[in-house]
Simulated assay, not measured.
Amino acid sequence: MKFLYEGTVTNQALRKTESMYMKRLFLEDLPIIEQVQKEVIESLPEKAALQPLSTEEFLFILNERGLLIGAFVEDQLIGFRALLIPEIDDEHLGLDLGLPEEELPNVIYQEISVVLPEYRGNRLQQKLAEVIMKELPNLEQQFRYVCCTVAPMNIPSLKDKFLQQMHIGALKEKYNGMDRYILVKDLEHPTIRYENHITVKLDDLEKQRQLLDHGYVGIGFQLVKGFHEIEFVKPVL
């Protein structure tokens, strides 16, 4: 089998360097996918920070409605990342971002990304992102926009998205009333020109909403007096 990536990772529990490879996941991998998701959620101090996928959602992706890439040490799945081709409905993230209806079929979601606790600190989420985005053009359908949701205060996940040049385009209530950033990357125009830098405290969601409503987007973090603040800018059209 041809692997999509080969390298090494450090098992933090054993303090040992191990060989690692990445490959596409299929229907027969569903039991180990769900087991890894369960272990990761159980390890989180704040369970609401991660929105897990249901069995039905995993089946939807694995049945040609997206892409799942897994990282393995020997035969053990240690992390995975998912892309989902969404149904077009009232909850579509493209609508949250103000995209015109004719653009909605051009949107794909970056879904859940998890790594087992003992393998964190290897930048595996970032490497999985690089690999899965390289595989995106191999899907039958072509996409222009990559979207996802992230919980406010989830700094590691936000850093991951900012490193991919995604930006915060909206802050909405999703998943039965939970606040979520809606992030997006336009693959046709991956970099944006901007002006008017403003930084806002992570927990000042009201100020962030005001800026987003006035056409600002969030592009990264700045350290202000030793604390992370989100950097908002106004795109130059």
Rank of each mutant, 00 (worst) to 15 (best):
S54G: 10
I32R: 15
Y175H: 11
E111W: 11
P86Q: 07
Q164I: 00
R144D: 00
V146A: 03
S113Q: 01
V40P: 01
Y216I: 01
L95M: 12
L163Q: 14
E130Y: 09
E39L: 11
D186F: 03
A48N: 11
Y145P: 03
L62S: 01
I108V: 15
L136V: 05
Q208L: 01
V131S: 02
L128C: 06
H197C: 08
G215S: 04
N196L: 09
L53C: 03
H228W: 04
L104R: 02
Q142A: 12
I108F: 04
T10D: 02
P190N: 05
E87F: 00
E64D: 14
E206R: 08
E102C: 02
K172F: 00
R180E: 05
P235G: 04
Q141N: 11
E102H: 13
L44M: 10
L30H: 08
L59M: 11
Q35N: 13
L187M: 13
Y119S: 02
R193S: 12
G226H: 09
F162Y: 13
G70E: 10
K201V: 04
M22Y: 12
V36N: 01
E118S: 13
V36T: 05
L68A: 15
V200R: 00
K185Y: 03
I88P: 09
Q165I: 00
T17I: 07
E118W: 05
Y5A: 14
G7M: 02
A151G: 06
M20S: 04
E195D: 13
H214T: 08
L183V: 12
G226S: 11
R144I: 06
R120T: 15
Q165D: 12
E6A: 10
I219T: 14
D29P: 08
D204T: 07
M133K: 10
Y21Q: 08
F162K: 03
L93G: 08
D75L: 06
L68V: 15
S54L: 08
Y194E: 02
K23M: 09
R193V: 08
V73Q: 07
Y145L: 04
T10V: 15
I132C: 11
